[in-house]
Simulated scan of single mutants.
Amino acid sequence: MKLQHHLGGIENLGPVSTEKRVFVEPWEQRIFGIHTVMMAESAHLSDALHRYPVDTLPTAFKSDWTWASLRTGAEDMQPFEYFKYRYYEKWLGGIAQFFVDQGYISAQELADKTAHYSAHPDAPLPDHPNAELTAQIDAYLQNGDSGYHALDGAARFRAGDAVRIGDPEAVDHTRLPGYLRNKTGVVDLVYPGAFSYFVSTDVDGIGAPMPVYRIAFDAASIWGKSEANTTIYADLYEAYVQPAA
Score class of each variant (00 low, 15 high):
E132H: 08
E132A: 10
E132Q: 10
E132W: 11
E132L: 08
L133D: 03
T134R: 12
I137A: 12
I137L: 12
I137C: 11
I137P: 00
I137S: 02
I137E: 07
D138T: 13
D138W: 10
A139L: 05
A139S: 08
A139V: 00
L141H: 03
L141K: 08
L141M: 12
N143D: 02
N143I: 01
G144L: 02
G144C: 02
D145Y: 13
D145N: 10
D145V: 14
S146E: 11
S146C: 09
G147K: 03
H149M: 07
H149F: 12
A150H: 09
A150Y: 01
L151S: 04
L151R: 07
L151I: 03
L151F: 02
D152Q: 13
D152T: 11
G153L: 04
G153M: 04
A155C: 12
R156T: 13
R156H: 14
R156F: 08
F157Y: 07
R158H: 05
G160Y: 00
V163S: 06
V163P: 01
V163N: 06
V163E: 01
R164A: 05
I165G: 08
I165E: 06
I165L: 13
I165W: 03
G166T: 07
D167W: 03
P168G: 07
E169H: 13
E169I: 14
A170N: 09
A170G: 14
A170E: 13
A170H: 08
V171L: 01
D172F: 02
D172Y: 02
H173M: 15
P177S: 09
G178L: 11
L180S: 05
R181P: 00
N182W: 06
K183G: 04
K183Y: 02
T184R: 10
G185A: 12
G185V: 04
G185D: 05
V186D: 07
V186L: 05
V187L: 10
D188Q: 13
L189K: 15
V190L: 03
P192K: 10
G193S: 03
G193M: 00
G193V: 04
G193H: 01
F195T: 03
S196A: 10
Y197Q: 14
Y197M: 14
F198K: 01
F198P: 00
F198D: 07
V199P: 00
S200M: 13
S200G: 15
T201H: 11
D202Y: 11
D202C: 15
V203A: 14
V203Q: 15
V203F: 11
G205R: 04
I206P: 05
I206R: 09
I206E: 11
